[in-house]
């Protein structure tokens, strides 16, 4: 069973009187444990696609299946639960909760989403912070961190829930070049350690090279699929 499949997915936005066709018929299957990138010019539909895959939005037409579940018809509560159980999110603006420390940010989904008991929680968080190299910053607040550090915390927050799929929309857009590489490298390493699938969308041609499969999008359609043999990962 594939992790993710999209069949004939279309998405229209109504902007005033005009209908924008953001996705014009996407067919796609993704296997477990892959490191996947979507590239393409601005407005090509990357974010729209990721939102559908992440159960944040519903397609106008077609079906989206994630981890064997058809997600297009879920109500708000069910889809929130589904996201909490299956999908991790990493955001362009890091989106950490400003009133919580590094440790508490990683703890947040375990408490508010998954209801994990204190004891097992603590170990998972400590372990996660270690892996992303933020253990020594655990008591700092997000405002005291650099962009790269924030994104590491965000990666830890996404992975601590043990998701089947991590979605990252432009995760490096607010980072400098070196940091961007390091963050992508970390994501790749995490993918291997947890055998989780990562899908990230980016403009940045240079970091695309890190992906195992690269989908190129143009004007609401996937125009090219490219498998990278060089999928080495790590820091450059």
């Amino acid at each position: 069973m594939s992790l993710l499949s999209l069949a004939n997915v279309r998405k229209d936005y109504l902007a005033g009187d005009v209908t924008v066709q953001a996705l014009k018929g996407i067919n796609l299957t993704v296997e477990k444990g892959k490191f996947i990138s979507f590239v393409g010019p601005s407005g090509s539909g990357k974010t729209t696609l990721l939102n559908l895959v992440g159960c944040l939005d519903k397609p106008t037409e077609g079906t989206v299946t994630v981890a064997g579940v058809e997600v297009n018809r879920m109500d708000r509560k069910t889809s929130a639960k589904f996201r909490g159980d299956n999908i991790g999110f990493i955001f362009q603006n890091f989106n950490l909760i400003p009133v919580l420390t590094v440790y508490e940010n990683v703890e947040y989904p375990l408490i508010m989403v998954q209801d994990i008991a204190l004891k097992s929680r603590k170990q998972r968080i400590d372990d996660m912070l270690d892996r992303v190299g933020m253990a020594d910053q655990r008591n700092k607040y997000p405002s005291q961190l650099s962009g790269g550090q924030k994104q590491r915390v965000a990666i830890a927050r996404a992975l601590v829930m043990d998701p089947k799929l991590v979605l990252a929309d432009e995760p490096t857009a607010n980072l400098d070049h070196d940091t961007a590489y390091k963050v992508i490298g970390l994501m790749h390493q995490m993918k291997k350690e947890f055998n989780t699938s990562f899908i990230f969308a980016t403009h940045d041609q240079k970091i695309v090279g890190e992906a195992e499969i690269v989908y190129t999008m143009e004007d609401g359609l996937i125009t090219k699929v490219q498998a990278n043999g060089t999928a080495g990962g790590g820091v450059k």
Partner: peptide
């Protein structure tokens, strides 16, 4: 609003 979007995305139930 942005923060609400974040916590909602990562699966916080509406009731919480």
């Amino acid at each position: 609003i942005g923060e609400i979007g974040t916590i909602a995305s990562i699966g916080t139930p509406p009731s919480k």
